[in-house]
Amino acid sequence: MAHDHDHDHHHHDNDLDPMAARVRALETILTRKGLVDTAAIDTIVETYETKVGPRNGAHVVAKAWSDPSFADWLRRDATAAIASLGYAGRQGEHMQAVFNTAETHNLVVCTLCSCYPWSVLGLPPVWYKAPPYRSRAVLDPRGVLAEFGLILPEGQKVRVWDSTAELRYLVIPMQPDGTEGWSEDRLTELVSRDSMIGTAVALAPEAA
């Protein structure tokens, strides 16, 4: 087949974004020193772009809903219970599962930076890392939840958990009414990322 369209033969320079050039500079130095290798970097990127995400956490929640002994284990030792499903933290951090009840709704923040339970939720959304959420989640949690469209019953307290480098929290939302006896797979569909941060609740069965 003839290529009769005009190729653009101007020799445009390539431009590297200033930040891209800095990362490459750093990576070059570290590679030369033997502190990182390119293949390992690629694997990490691929893992976090495609393999780790909120589906992992939804699995944990669905299992806790359908298996009381797992829920019990999760309460006592979330790090081990979560690791038993194959989701282990890479930074050696401990996990704590905080269970929502009719009396208490849990909300997770990292006021210092952006600590987040990567192994079960993947990387945090932009708003989680942004200053307004980090500062206001503690000062005015109900106001923040309202902006997410979540209005809690007046009698339900909000408890805010401030993550650290060593300890990350996973909210276990309340199981929606009318889903008793559902399979884990089906339950997983009701568990959004935000419901495990606490800025949402689990979806109602008719909404999933």
Partner: peptide, 17 residues
């Protein structure tokens, strides 16, 4: 997860180190 490739590289460097 990342809006530009360099962000992913910067992220991965920290995890690897």
């Amino acid at each position: 997860v990342f809006s530009e490739p360099w962000q992913a590289e910067a992220f991965a460097l920290v995890v690897a180190l």
